[in-house]
Design a protein around this nucleic acid. Structure first.
Length: 370
DNA sequence: AAACAAGACAACCGCAGCCAG
DNA sequence: CCTGGCTGCGGTTGTCTTGTT
């Protein structure tokens, strides 16, 4: 198994993408869908390999990306999921709509790992680091429970896999063993009703998430519930994406079924001030600023909660579709993209006329009836 | 103000799995 | 069954930005 064939080709550009390249790729996929990635660069007029195009689309151009800093809730969720799934970034990303595995991986390696270590928690085992042990050595030698190894040589890295923890389900007293992953998804898909919180606490305790108490939370009683109340995706996804690996369909189904954690509208996607501070500075916009970051994102619109959230959801969806449509059809990024929320709302109101047109474009582009 | 370090982010690399021929 | 093309994934590296001295 050698390198991908496209990598052999000459004259292929590498490195950072230019706005022009982004536009070409975006226009092509918007109009035709990606189809076979290996043919995309040729058809789109790009001097890139298909692999690079795919990566660029998935990590950067995809219209459903939620750009901006991770909220504290998202970070907590990532930690929790990592405790269960290990370094399966794609699976973790699947639980965080709008986030990419690459993004999460980067966050983990650059930020979360450090935070956990500062709290005396081994980021790989999610257990307190022993005083006598060398934190770095310990943490780099162990991995969280892993049910299966995607790669045969995973263990050869500096993060050797720890023996998976057998899990006894909380739903019955039998000794049936689940892999952590199985248990996680079983839990996620079956929990419902008022007992969820307690189940969740129980579930998390199975994974020795003893770092939980270290994470600041104003309400200890709701600690686990709050921190995991976003285990499911947002209640509604405006588009059914065609890209792989993202369980939006299930997410939407879960939400529409009215049996998710979020029925009360209390899931906290997109708390803008949580976590890292927003670095957006209109005076220092890079030319190649991501349009998807600049585009309005319904899940980042504001701190809508509860009824607010539900009420504003359809509006947000409309805005989301409209905005991504606009971004897909118009030129790249201009400073006009940096609007205040009020300005954006005004713009939204005035753009109703073109909504249907954009909607049609999207329908064609994504092969999905909206 | 310049040099350096650290952090954040984007992209590449290599491998494995899937699947059609 | 075998082979090769393609895709997806995770690890790693490169580059740019920001902070510190």
């Amino acid at each position: 198994m050698g390198r991908h064939s496209c990598c052999y080709k000459q004259k292929l550009r590498k490195g950072l993408w230019s706005p022009d390249e982004d536009e070409k790729l975006l226009n092509y996929i918007t109009n035709h869908g990606h189809g076979c990635w290996s043919s995309v660069p040729k058809l789109a007029g790009l001097q890139r390999c298909g692999k690079s195009c795919r990566l660029r689309w998935i990590n950067y151009l995809r219209p459903d990306l939620k750009r901006g800093p991770f909220s504290q809730h998202e970070e907590d969720l990532i930690i929790e999921l990592h405790a269960v799934l290990g370094n399966r970034w794609s699976q973790i990303a699947a639980q965080l709509p709008g986030r990419t595995d690459n993004e999460i991986k980067n966050l983990w390696n650059s930020c979360i790992k450090k935070k956990l270590r500062q709290k005396g928690i081994d980021p790989n085992t999610h257990k307190p680091v022993s005083v006598s042990g060398d934190a770095d050595n310990d943490s780099e030698k162990q991995l969280p429970p892993t049910s299966t190894s995607h790669r045969s040589n995973d263990n050869s890295s500096d993060e050797a896999i720890e023996t998976p923890l057998p899990i006894i389900t909380s739903s019955n007293s039998s000794s049936q063993i689940y892999s952590p992953t199985q248990e996680f998804f079983r839990f996620q898909t079956t929990t419902a009703g008022s007992h969820r919180a307690s189940e969740l606490v129980e579930f998390l305790s199975f994974h020795n998430l003893n770092y939980v108490s270290e994470i600041p939370n104003p309400n200890p009683n709701s600690l686990c519930f709050n921190q995991t109340s976003h285990l499911l995706p947002p209640p509604s996804i405006p588009l059914k994406p065609t890209w792989e690996g993202t369980d939006f369909t299930a997410a939407a189904a879960t939400a529409s079924g009215g049996s998710s954690f979020f029925d009360g509208g209390n899931f906290p996607w997109g708390l803008p001030e949580c976590g890292k501070t927003e670095k957006l500075n209109p005076t220092a916009i890079r030319e190649d600023k991501k349009w998807s970051e600049i585009m309005e994102n319904p899940f980042m619109m504001g701190n809508t909660t509860g009824e607010q959230n539900q009420e504003s959801q359809s509006q947000n969806e409309s805005m989301y579709v409209e905005n991504l449509s606009t971004a897909a059809e118009t030129e790249f990024i201009t400073e006009s993209g940096w609007q205040s929320q009020t300005q954006r709302q005004q713009a939204q109101a005035s753009s109703d006329a073109v909504y249907n047109k954009h909607l049609h474009t999207l329908t064609v582009s994504f092969g999905h009836t909206l």
